[in-house]
Design a protein around this nucleic acid. Structure first.
Lengths: 225, 225
DNA sequence: CTTCCATTTGACACCCGGTGTCATTACCGT
DNA sequence: ACGGTAATGACACCGGGTGTCAAATGGAAG
């Protein structure tokens, strides 16, 4: 996995392209024709490579969308390690997930289109589950460590699953509201999660960052259905 | 959708089989050869119908596994309606989800095999996301109603996503422990969720049904990885 | 019984994603 | 120039899914 650029002094023919290059080509086509209408042949042809070669750069057409996801997970793992041990679990979780999703200002449009594909194209929605498993594993590992339980135990796994769900809801919310701040939405959602969604103490404002974050973009729904 | 058995006095040729019959045939093959190794042709042949006809009974090979899921969702919706209005949201949620998963004693093995397929076969894991969306919609609708917010709002959606995640974690936990009680596991997990996973008041036992439920099957992990 | 209509069926042809195989091509160091 | 190494792409194949259309089936009307 992961093609080293081209170590100097490496024997053999050099790759005729790269994952990133291929990704660019593909995204251009996805933008133009949509994900489903773009065939692997289209991408390969546009990139000037053979169909078979495409599948040496990506395991599947779906995987094109995910870019350097695996590497980013390492970052997230590192983020967890960096949190102080005495910080409440759910607060560390919130902080890391929010930070994990902070992208450079110029990159947010790119991030948006990526998320849009993943969350809106059924084929990618489905496939994403497989990728999310890795994300969850990172969270579960952290939670298990903090709780002193097994990674595979119910609580760590439930936390990981619930965290993922919460993040997905935030993503969707953000996508539906151009101009909104993803980090703020995530912060709100994870604060809610840590509170059990009002389960214990619905009341007014015992909130910490939640209120300010909420203020950032809590307009009413614009959609129907 | 949903083939009426055979309304008396309905013109036209009668179906040569039914979804349930097809499902039985398919499950037998899945058990014997595994999901991936079983082709649609295999199922069709075993059922004595044409390949094309199979796809008139199911939208996809994946859908075979889901049985009467849509109908069950109606039950769940009804379950939500039956809860008293003054009950805390997350408590209603827990109660309904637990009840939703209570199956007749004789059916639990069948339920188990179904869940095993959905949660363990990658192709089905992926596909399941699409089905879960309906489940989430039911939960979100209920949550929105209780909160007086839009169904598409962040909180209802986050709750729905988190609830789904929690349920999945419970399913997996249950699957990994033959003999354990699914409802008890679900109860525990949802109680935890409503508490924000210890986010507010980690302490000992402020729990209600949680402790008894937990006692039912909280052995330590047996798996590695 | 025949005719008409509604409906299901299945054969056939396609498309597309994904994989195994293998000769070919390109590049390295010698 | 040579040999090893790695990427490439043509080819064939599998399997899921779809559009099309003629044929089969059965109820109801004549």
């Amino acid at each position: 996995m992961s093609t080293a650029a081209s170590s100097p002094g490496r024997p053999g023919r050099r790759p005729s392209t790269s994952q990133v290059e291929l990704e660019k080509v593909a995204f251009r086509l996805f933008d133009r024709d949509g994900f489903d209408a773009t065939t692997v042949d289209d991408i390969a042809t546009a990139a000037g490579i053979g169909r078979r070669t495409f599948f040496r750069y990506f395991d599947s057409k779906n995987d094109v969308v995910w870019g350097a996801f695996t590497e980013q997970l390492d970052q997230m793992r590192a983020g967890f390690c960096a949190r102080p041990d005495n910080e409440p679990l759910m607060e560390s979780l919130r902080a890391v997930v929010v930070e994990f999703n902070r992208v450079a200002p110029g990159e947010t449009e790119r991030h948006r289109r990526r998320l849009e594909l993943i969350l809106r194209v059924p084929a990618l929605q489905a496939h994403s589950t497989l990728r999310y498993a890795d994300w969850r594993a990172v969270v579960a590992e952290f939670a298990a460590d903090r709780l002193g339980e097994e990674t595979g135990g119910l609580r760590p796994q439930a936390i990981a699953h619930a965290a993922l769900g919460t993040a997905l809801a935030a993503y969707e919310h953000w996508l539906g509201r151009p101009g909104s701040d993803l980090c703020a939405v995530l912060d709100t959602a994870f604060t809610d999660l840590a509170r059990g969604f009002g389960g214990a103490g619905e009341g007014a404002a015992s909130g910490r960052g939640a209120d300010s974050a909420a203020g950032a973009d809590f307009g009413e729904e614009t959609r129907g259905s």
